[in-house]
């Protein structure tokens, strides 16, 4: 059953399907960005495929892909759909460069609306033709896109000025960058220079380089200094 989906796709769409895989039983097809909407429409409307059940859409950030020699631009956008009548499912993938707009699938499956808003919020991928592209999980004042690998995880952007009282600071082990740092990759450092694999905290201990890489600079809506930077 599952083979049939990919075969049908290849037979009907031919060269539009750039690659397919069925790693661990998950059927997947890769298409070019310009065919994204068309293939999605085909998935829904084709009588044999009949993918009428929208499941999910998400993105994956591969910031160093081009440098490391792998083909393809920075972001993977991944769609999951299922057919309620045929009970099969497929994963559709396309690739988009930073800032490149992806056609919105809202006209095909209404459920794509919030997922696309979330991807826009978390990765900063714009969707063309989306009726209402706003942030959904974060607040409008937030700058940057946290799920990009180079957004430092501990960079907060408070909406309320913190109180200025003694004794309310976090104590270890809840300081920044504590925990289990051995295998953690510091992407911001990697992308903006060095190629240190271990955590910045350990690097600092060994006197390798400054403690925390700052990543790209943002200014807060209020114009205040970010308390995270003040330390």
């Amino acid at each position: 059953m599952s083979k049939k989906v990919l075969e049908r796709l290849k037979a009907q769409l031919g060269s539009k399907i750039l690659a397919t895989s069925d790693f661990r039983g998950d059927d997947e097809a890769i298409v070019a960005l310009k065919d994204w909407l068309e293939v999605a429409r085909f998935l829904r409307d084709d009588a044999e495929l009949a993918f009428d059940h929208y499941l999910d859409m998400t993105a994956v950030d591969h910031p160093m892909r081009e440098e490391s020699g792998e083909p393809g631009p920075r972001f993977d956008v991944v769609l999951f759909v299922r057919s309620s009548t045929k009970n099969h499912r497929v994963r559709l993938r396309t690739r988009a460069a930073d800032g490149e707009a992806v056609p919105s699938l809202f006209p095909v499956w209404a459920g794509a609306s919030w997922s696309e808003r979330e991807i826009f919020d978390m990765f900063g991928i714009p969707f063309e033709g989306h009726p209402d592209l706003r942030r959904i999980l974060l607040y409008p004042e937030f700058q940057g896109h946290p799920l990009r690998k180079d957004y430092p995880i501990e960079r907060t952007q408070p909406l309320v000025q913190y109180r200025d009282v003694d004794g309310i600071d976090k104590l270890p082990p809840f300081g920044p960058d504590m925990g289990q740092p051995w295998t953690r990759v510091d992407w911001a450092a990697r992308m903006h220079g060095g190629d240190v694999q271990v955590s910045p905290a350990i690097g600092a201990q060994q006197g390798q380089r400054p403690a925390l890489s700052k990543g790209p600079e943002y200014t807060l809506a209020s114009g205040d200094k970010n308390p995270a930077d003040a330390e």
């Binding site: 974060l138 946290p146 957004y151 430092p152 995880i153 501990e154 960079r155 907060t156 952007q157 408070p158 309320v160 913190y162 109180r163 009282v165 309310i168 976090k170 809840f174 920044p176 504590m178 925990g179």
Partner: peptide, 20 residues
């Protein structure tokens, strides 16, 4: 009390940063 293990961009590290 202190933000717990959500030590990241999204959470307030303890409500005492906002109110007593």
């Amino acid at each position: 009390s202190c933000g717990g293990f959500y030590d990241n961009y999204a959470t307030v590290p303890g409500i005492d940063k906002i109110i007593p």
